[in-house]
Amino acid sequence: MSNTLPMEPKPDTALLLQDVSIEYRIPSESIRTFKEYIIRVLQGKIKHSSFLALKNVNLEVKQGEIFGVLGRNGAGKSTMLKVISKVLIPATGRLWIKGSISPLLQLGAGFHPELTGRENIFLNGTLLGHSQDEIAEKVDEIIEFSEIGSFLETPLRTYSSGMQARLGFAVATAWKPDILILDEVLSVGDVAFQEKCLQRMADFRESGATVLMVSHSIEQIRSICKRALWLDRGEIKIMGDAQDVCDAYQDAMLKKK
């Protein structure tokens, strides 16, 4: 099995998942009201059925590596990203990360409509864990990149959705992450702005950031990644050379049809 891993991170390790499992309770079984909870406790009928979204996942990504994650919808790709982003704390297993991770934040979540663009830059920046000093250093760059221009001092509710998305993207990517997560294809604003976003991502990649690329697109993984894994129903089916993994994935998908 390619799932065997060293127990301790090495000097060039960027990311390490050891035996990580994530268990979700099945929604229909979960108790949604306090009243119901009390009744069930009194009846002694508290039982949980659950399913594993990730099963004993082991993964090591080296610094500077471009790593691909393949898998169908519901295979556990997003769950894995949430674990890596420290959003979901796994009940079992270990997560080890060196350095910062690019945020998964949906562009503009956390903005407040009554605050101005500038105020929102600071609010959003601190939500992402940066200090006010760090934001002050970057604020001009963010303003320039987002192209909001004269709207800077007006409330966010007067912005078009494109402007909000641009501002969100500019804040989220103002700091170079050590580990870059490329999730879905960027669809922010017009073609020219998309070009700018892709350029920024490429810059991050070239400057030596570790990249974790999550995609349905086999071609994308094939062309960029060296190593990859295929996630199926929460388990790593194959991990190794990106070409081999892509071949195996492609075969399996064709057979299904």
Partner: peptide, 29 residues
């Protein structure tokens, strides 16, 4: 670069307190 290791987390009450201090600018905002 800072290292995060889920195997070396402190008691949740202390962990939360330290995190809150680190994010004090967020509280202000």
């Amino acid at each position: 670069p800072t290292i995060y290791d889920s195997a070396k987390r402190k008691h949740p009450a202390i962990e939360e307190l330290l995190a809150l201090f680190k994010y004090r600018d967020l509280i202000y905002q």
